[in-house]
């Protein structure tokens, strides 16, 4: 029952957080610019066009009225039209979301499967040459600009060695779009050639996104394991003669994982969602990050605002899911 109460209170908190998010984006788009209509209309717009647009978009009304209207629109999923594609922003983002999710999920999985074991091993053999090597790699991973790493990987693996494709999601005809995930669609079509092509395209962007995330996970897991391994309950288990293997992989890892799980939401937001913006640009990956950058390049203001709201929404939802998972992994917080 406690868990239900937690879930419920989290869901209730969503409402003010989302309202706050909309207020923040409204401030950036409607209050900060000297003339928001000029920004939305683009650089080529004439004075008459701007005046017409001002009335049409309701910018001549008082600010609070604009804000209420804005909340109403956003709540219905209406983020305005893209100046470039002349389609609703929501439609464009929806069409591109699976590409970003496919990349992001692959990156998080890779980061977890590499970062967590390395962190555990690094902590168990602390101050060994292995530990030092892992720490050097993790410190480096956090210092690399991901757009630069992406280009260096392209230079090495795509241009010099020609092992991986330079950019895009797939060669030849894409499989029938069911889920929007190229790999899953290819499996559904039993099209192994397409699957192989999709995986080859996925390799470098995933690696780029996963590196800083894995580096952060190594650090967190290492610190978490070291803290638990010196705690009283592990001392007790040692005294009781539990095999070291059981202590480490059953008790220490579980306790350390709770610290890591809480960070996965943050990692998704900071390294994967934000990283997608530049990584998708370099690899020409048709996700929402590339959409955001194209909007910047074309001064498509609605596009950037729409992306900001979506990024906030995804981040909030991921954190909500993480909180729920946390309450299952670590029953202490429910009590």
């Amino acid at each position: 029952m406690k868990r239900l109460a937690i879930i419920f209170s989290r869901l209730i908190w969503l409402v003010p957080t989302l309202l706050g998010l909309i207020a923040l984006v409204f401030t950036i788009s409607h209050v900060i610019p000297a003339d928001p209509v000029r920004v939305i209309a683009g650089e080529q717009a004439t004075a008459e066009q701007i005046a017409a647009l001002r009335t049409k978009l309701g910018f001549d009304r008082p600010l609070w009225e604009q804000f209420l209207a804005y909340i109403g629109k956003v709540a219905q999923g209406d983020l305005g039209m893209s100046l470039f594609s002349q389609r609703p922003i929501t439609e464009d983002l929806m069409a591109r979301l699976p590409a970003t999710l496919e990349l992001g999920i692959a990156a998080v999985f890779l980061a977890v499967f590499v970062g967590v074991p390395l962190g555990v091993v690094s902590a168990l053999f602390r101050n060994s040459p292995l530990d030092h090597a892992v720490r050097v790699v993790s410190v480096s991973g956090l210092a690399i600009a991901s757009f630069w790493l992406a280009m260096e990987l392209q230079l090495l693996f795509s241009m010099k060695l020609a092992w991986t494709p330079l950019s895009g999601r797939i060669d030849g005809f894409p499989p029938e779009p069911r889920s929007g995930f190229m790999t899953i669609d290819a499996i559904a079509d039993r099209d192994w050639e397409a699957l192989f092509s999709a995986l080859r395209h996925l390799a470098l962007p995933t690696l780029t996104l996963a590196l800083p995330a894995a580096a952060q996970l190594v650090r967190l897991t290492r610190a978490g394991v070291l803290e638990v391994i010196n705690s009283n309950h592990v001392l007790y288990q040692r005294a009781m003669g539990y095999p070291e293997r059981v202590i480490v992989w059953k008790y220490v890892l579980r306790a350390a994982m709770t610290a890591t799980v809480t960070q996965i939401g943050l990692i998704f937001g900071v390294y994967v969602l934000a990283g997608a913006i530049v990584v998708e640009t370099v690899f020409d990956w048709p996700g929402i990050g590339l959409f955001a950058v194209n909007s910047i390049l074309r001064s498509d203001y609605n596009g950037i605002v729409g992306f900001t709201i979506w990024a906030g929404l995804i981040f909030i939802l991921v954190n909500l899911i993480v909180d729920l998972v946390h309450s299952f992994v670590d029953p202490r917080i429910v009590r």
């Binding site: 957080t17 706050g20 998010l21 950036i28 900060i32 937001g269 969602l273 934000a274 906030g312």
Partner: peptide, 23 residues
């Protein structure tokens, strides 16, 4: 603190991009 949390609900670089594009 609620205001701070709302700012934190958007990844930092996304917020920075939106603001610098506006300015």
């Amino acid at each position: 603190m609620r205001i701070a949390e709302i700012f934190l609900s958007v990844p930092q670089i996304v917020l920075a991009i939106a603001i610098s594009q506006t300015l």
